[in-house]
Design a protein around this nucleic acid. Structure first.
Length: 735
DNA sequence: CAATTCGGGATCTGC
DNA sequence: TCCCGAATTG
């Protein structure tokens, strides 16, 4: 690596001293612990520029890995503006890097050139064709377990008990899935990491070549990496490569899909000689927002520890509103929105996508413009997946999942039986389904036989078009000649959906690619991996509706975090302490999105599966020192705020309501509900049960004529009771 | 083989 | 409450 320049180049002058250290660091491994809003992207992009401009590193020997395409795109753009050569760097997501690598080495990796990527839905379909008698929920669970196993780099032969309790069953399911997927010649998301890892481990020539190519490896959002990615990184980084990872252990929120916080917590052990740099100055939020965030996350045990600070002033205190129900919550948000002409200043955050519904319908009704980030992903739409299935089948004719998807859509009298016969013929002869379609298939009815011949004609013609015409023409013809376009057009007609428009969008997108098999594979890869590109225009005055997970990396002048109720957020109230810590980190992420103003809302009643359920306020509210926020309408709370205690899973006290506050007025409507039989057992109340001991009421709802309560006990048990029949003694649980 | 109806169960987060 | 899959019927 080049020598340190004597003077600091001009373009680095905007950096603070710690950032500058991180940018100029050379030699051994570097871990940058970058707090929320600490200018992380800035540091990475400046570092890329610095490596190119000052250290004489070839741009093409720099690999930067991110977790989302959005982050990759942003990094690419910003780096290129600092150092023109940076456009030659390889800046990709882990998965997209894996796909690139496999595409380039497909032969050595044992894959056909036209392999495509199966998403979760495809995986379930494949499992379904292997185990037709299993229920869908069960297959969903198996698919999740398999993908989790792959996150941990586990194979069917490994001990899978970490992934599921039914590991014997999973082993068999996983094994058959694994074999079938190899026969088909496609990969799933996990394979995009695992198969490059396998190849690098077993093929020294490939490993040496790639290690020589990438002299510098940068990883963003390292706290979200999983075990397989950790291993891949290790195989990728040679002894003379420079490795720099950037992340924030406090923002690790993807455990459910295999992210392993330990990767970042133990990085310095895995890579001896690591230099650690902490970016703790926050440039985003006011002091009072940061105070609140820090207080909450400080309760987590498993963290490296870091305290954000800011030069900004304290600003207004975050506000907390207790509301009666989700309708009142919408109303509350609307009022905040109306205090400011700029809708785009505000983001409304929620834990689950389902919560967006009420906001959508109300905003639609009132003419409040909004945009939803990341719910319906473009390629997951039915019509898009249909057309893609045709294309994928052209790319890889052994793709059984895609074949089954479109063979009888629109209906052409090829039912399950006939399709099975065709697939059987294919399996008997190498697995090529398009060949089977062209062959004589025994046992078909006259009608089915005619349909088979027709479909064969369609695919023969499309196959011919793969090399001959441009990709957008191919996509167009694929939609047209299979009848999918017409099929969806008629759906549009009586549903008023915009399916054809989406197909057109797909045709458009294909226009950016060339022609031929390679372009086709590249296009399909982009669609699969760049899942949530917004079809709607980004700009314009609109409120943002978004899940907390999706806000990672974003910021807004004003943030409203909704649904702070025990059981909704944190969600995994009945799971282990690890789950709660993860939820707490998610809360931290959500809070630190806010630049100037922060609002928190908590509803007493919420409709769940058509039933009205009463919830206790989120325990996180009890973890905030009262002086750090303003409870709406008065200085005192109008509802029981859970008091924090040493044991994060337990303990809160009943503070009787203080009347006459704004929040009281806001929640008038549904309070009229009577809960006679369990009147002294509202959520948050302490109870004693003869067998289970001390507990806290988590939820209360109606079932038929009975009132039910769900109680979380000190010993970790969760149980549901009908208070009318079960003796539950109301107790005070103050220490 | 396709269309209609009915009943039971429930996606939490997402590359 | 809503949606999907199974059973039923044409």
């Amino acid at each position: 690596m080049g020598s340190l320049p004597e003077t600091i180049p001009d373009y680095l002058h905007g950096l603070n001293p710690v950032q500058l250290d991180a940018v100029r660091h050379q030699g051994g491994p570097l871990l940058i612990l970058a707090g929320a809003g600490s200018g992380k992207t800035r540091v990475i992009t400046y570092k890329i520029a610095y490596l190119i401009r000052e250290c004489g590193i070839q741009p093409r020997s720099i690999l930067a890995v991110t977790f989302t395409n959005k982050a990759a795109g942003e990094m690419r753009e910003r780096a290129a503006s600092l150092a023109p050569g940076a456009s030659e760097c390889m800046i990709r997501t882990f998965h997209s890097f894996g796909a690139w690598f496999l595409r380039r080495n497909h032969e050595r990796a044992g894959l056909p050139a036209g392999f495509t990527i199966y998403d979760d839905d495809d995986v379930v379909q494949l499992l379904r064709s292997l185990f037709p008698d299993e229920s869908k929920p069960h297959l969903n669970a198996q698919s999740r377990a398999i993908s989790r196993a792959k996150d941990y780099a586990l194979y069917p032969g490994n001990d899978l008990s970490a992934v599921t309790h039914q590991h014997e069953e999973l082993r068999d399911v996983y094994r058959r899935y694994h074999e079938r997927l190899r026969e088909i010649g496609n990969v799933d998301f996990g394979d995009l990491i695992l198969r490059p890892l396998e190849l690098l481990r077993r093929d020294e020539a490939v490993r040496t070549r790639i290690q020589q190519r990438f002299r510098v490896v940068l990883v963003d959002e390292y706290q979200d990496s999983n075990v397989a990615q950790f291993e891949l990184l290790r195989a990728l980084v040679g002894s003379d490569s420079y490795l720099c990872v950037v992340g924030d252990d406090d923002q690790s929120i993807y455990r459910f899909r295999g992210a392993e916080v330990r990767n970042i917590l133990t990085f310095h052990e895995q890579y001896p000689g690591t230099t650690t740099v902490r970016l703790e100055q926050n440039y985003r939020s006011t002091g009072s927002i940061l105070n609140l965030a820090s207080e909450v996350v400080a309760r987590n045990e498993g963290r490296l520890g870091k305290r954000l600070w800011t030069e900004r002033e304290d600003g207004p205190l975050p506000q907390l509103a207790f509301l009666s129900d989700a309708e009142a919550e919408v109303e509350f948000c609307v009022r905040i929105l109306q205090a400011d002409a700029r809708y785009s200043n505000t983001a409304i955050l929620y834990r689950t996508n389902a919560q967006s519904r009420l906001f959508e319908s109300e905003f639609l009704r009132r003419g409040i413009p909004y945009r939803i980030v990341g719910t319906l992903r473009f390629y997951e739409r039915e019509e898009v997946k249909d057309v893609l299935a045709v294309l994928r089948l052209l790319a890889n004719p052994r793709d059984e999942v895609s074949f089954r998807r479109i063979v009888n859509k629109p209906a052409r009298s090829l039912g399950l039986k006939s399709v099975d016969r065709i697939v059987d013929v294919a399996l008997a002869g190498g697995g090529d389904l398009l060949d089977a379609l062209a062959a004589a298939v025994p046992g078909l009815t006259k009608k089915a036989e005619k349909a088979r011949a027709e479909l064969d004609g369609v695919f023969a013609s499309l196959t011919g078009a793969v090399e001959g015409s441009s990709l957008s023409v191919l996509v167009e013809r694929a939609a047209e000649e299979t009848g999918l376009r017409e099929y969806h057009a008629s759906q549009d007609e009586y549903q008023g959906s915009g399916k054809v428009a989406n197909i057109d969008e797909l045709v458009n997108a294909a226009g950016l690619y060339g022609s031929g098999r390679e372009a086709l594979a590249e296009f399909l890869e982009m669609i699969e991996l760049d899942a949530n590109r917004d079809t709607a225009a980004e700009d314009g005055e609109a409120v943002t509706l978004i899940t907390m997970h999706n806000t990672k990396g974003l910021e807004f002048p004003r943030v409203i975090i909704t649904g702070l109720e025990e059981g909704l957020f944190p969600r995994g109230a009945d799971e282990g302490p690890g789950e709660i810590e993860e939820e707490r980190r998610l809360f931290y992420v959500a809070v630190t999105r806010a630049e100037n103003e922060l609002y928190l809302t908590s509803c007493r009643y919420r409709r769940l599966y058509g039933r009205i359920t009463e919830y206790a306020p989120s325990r996180f509210l009890g973890e905030i020192p009262p002086e750090l926020l303003e409870t709406l309408g008065s200085g005192t709370s109008s509802r029981r705020i859970p008091a924090a205690s040493g044991d994060p899973g337990f303990g809160r006290q009943g503070i009787p309501a203080a009347g006459g506050t704004v929040s009281d007025r806001l929640r008038s409507a549904s309070d009229a509900e009577d809960w006679e039989e369990a009147d002294d057992l509202p959520p948050g109340a302490g109870v004693y049960h003869d067998d289970y001991g001390l507990g806290v009421v988590q939820k209360r709802w109606r079932k038929g004529t009975n009132v039910m309560v769900r109680v979380g006990f000190e010993n970790g048990r969760i149980a549901t009771f009908i208070p009318r029949y079960t003796p539950l003694e109301r107790v005070s649980i103050d220490e």
